[in-house]
């Protein structure tokens, strides 16, 4: 009998779901009926985010990120999350500051000293991957295959501290990295347009919107604008997510704030700087109290930011080509 030689094994614990288990979940739990999934963020997070879930999100902290949903997860004080931080400047930091996170798969863990200290103290456990390897893992999860073979991470300590395995490829006879498929328990994604059934489209670079949604058991999207289904049928090439991937649709204008959303508003640099200057737990808890716990919902949060500021951010978003 022939064996494939295993050359090296990364030591990280991985979140892994057998492809057949995932398929059966999709068969039984993902409704193919076009039904109205519009709900507020409180209901969506209550129904679809559980303590201990593996959480993924798309796009980034500064562009089309699902920030209103992140704040709702914090408001509901979810616990023991394992976060896919493909590249993250704010989300993981706020979630960690609020005590929601135990583990982080790192692509890029930005935001400086606050999160660095949490890692140094061992308050959160990190597993090092890279943006590319995590993306490829999501691709595998979206394809229903158990792993994907790729040529990143090879030769590095990143690989040693990831959950990848190096084998000798039976075709090329060269060492090849196998990345385990990633099937998150829940994905939260912000989009420009969605209908009430969950058909959705994004404008601009897509990062891993489709792969993340396809690979995840539960998917919540928040949308700047709710549109009629005919908008998708008129231009089907522009459908990023078909409705049957999506479990909940939240109407969230300014849902990416303090980041921006292409075609709608720019990021709020001042608010962002205020966040990145948080260095200790005192400042973090003060921020969370003021902007998350003490407001009831996204609308109250926006009222706190104020119409003047929001208008300025809309005013700055002058580039529209490509975004409608």
């Amino acid at each position: 009998m022939d064996f494939i030689e295993i050359i090296e094994r990364g030591e990280a614990e991985i979140h892994y779901i057998h492809p057949d288990d995932f398929r059966e979940y999709v068969r039984d739990k993902k409704n193919r009926e076009m039904k109205d999934k519009l709900m507020d963020e409180r209901e969506a997070v209550k129904k679809f985010v559980s303590n201990g879930d593996y959480l993924a999100y798309d796009f980034s902290s500064l562009t089309r990120g699902p920030q209103s949903l992140i704040r709702e997860i914090i408001r509901q004080r979810k616990k023991n999350l394992w976060v896919c931080a493909k590249f993250t400047l704010l989300e993981t930091v706020l979630l960690s500051g609020a005590g929601c996170v135990d583990k982080i798969d790192v692509g890029f863990l930005g935001f400086g000293p606050y999160i660095a200290r949490k890692v140094q103290n061992g308050e959160v456990k990190v597993y090092d991957w890279s943006n590319g390897s995590i993306t490829y893992r999501l691709v595998a999860g979206a394809m229903g295959i158990p792993f994907i073979a790729a040529r990143n991470l090879l030769g590095t300590d990143t690989l040693k501290h990831s959950g990848a395995v190096v084998v000798r490829c039976p075709f090329s006879n060269t060492p090849t990295a196998l990345m385990p498929a990633l099937n998150p328990d829940v994905a939260i994604i912000h989009v420009q347009e969605a209908d009430i059934y969950g058909n959705a489209r994004v404008y601009g670079p897509t990062v891993a919107t489709l792969e993340t949604a396809m690979a995840s058991k539960k998917v919540i999207i928040s949308a700047e604008r709710i549109v009629e289904t005919i908008e998708f049928r008129k231009n089907p090439l522009m459908t990023t997510l078909p409705y049957y991937l999506v479990d909940a649709v939240v109407h969230a204008p300014f849902g990416a704030y303090p980041g921006g959303t292409q075609g709608y508003y720019e990021m709020d640099s001042e608010h962002y700087l205020m966040l990145t200057s948080i260095a200790d737990d005192n400042a973090m808890q003060k921020y969370l109290e003021e902007y998350v716990y003490s407001v009831d919902n996204h609308e109250e949060f926006l009222a706190k930011i104020g119409m003047d500021k929001l208008k300025q951010l809309i005013r700055k978003a002058e580039i529209l080509e490509g975004y409608r």
Binding site: S60, N131, P205, A208, G259, E266, I319, G322, Y323
Partner: peptide
């Protein structure tokens, strides 16, 4: 600085695509 994936930094691209494709 900042919004690398936003309108100013990705202006008039030949293609917008996924991260998977870019890598």
């Amino acid at each position: 600085r900042g919004t690398m994936g936003g309108p100013t930094n990705t202006y008039r691209a030949i293609q917008w695509c996924s991260m998977n494709l870019a890598f």
